[in-house]
Amino acid sequence: MWRRRTGGGARRSPEAAQAAERAEPAAPVRPAEPPALTIDALGRKCPIPIIMLAERINQVATGGVVAVLADDPAAFTDVPAWCRLKSHEHVGSYELPQGGWSIHVRRNY
């Protein structure tokens, strides 16, 4: 779709992120730290993935990582936005081979 995207860029769209990963193979594509909990929200529309994350994040210890598996394009933007609003850390979003993302969140408190 779009060839390039520059500047600002609070967040990138899924297409832009995919394009960037194609263009920059050096970008991390695998998580450094295995998640302590995986939430399967594949096939679920927003806000359900966020609700599942909010319900279950306290099941990991402070500092632990939760992976949210989601394929609704809204989740790609909404999980990091939720982290910012709730003062948790968005560690990264990693593409799944079957489509969608594994979105990693660190519990900060």
Binding site: P73, A74, A81
Partner: peptide
């Protein structure tokens, strides 16, 4: 996205990185 025919959230909210 649930109010759009495309099933995608608004490109504006996406580009801003805010809740969609």
């Amino acid at each position: 996205s649930c109010t759009a025919s495309t099933l995608r959230p608004s490109h504006v909210l996406e580009a801003m990185g805010v809740l969609t």
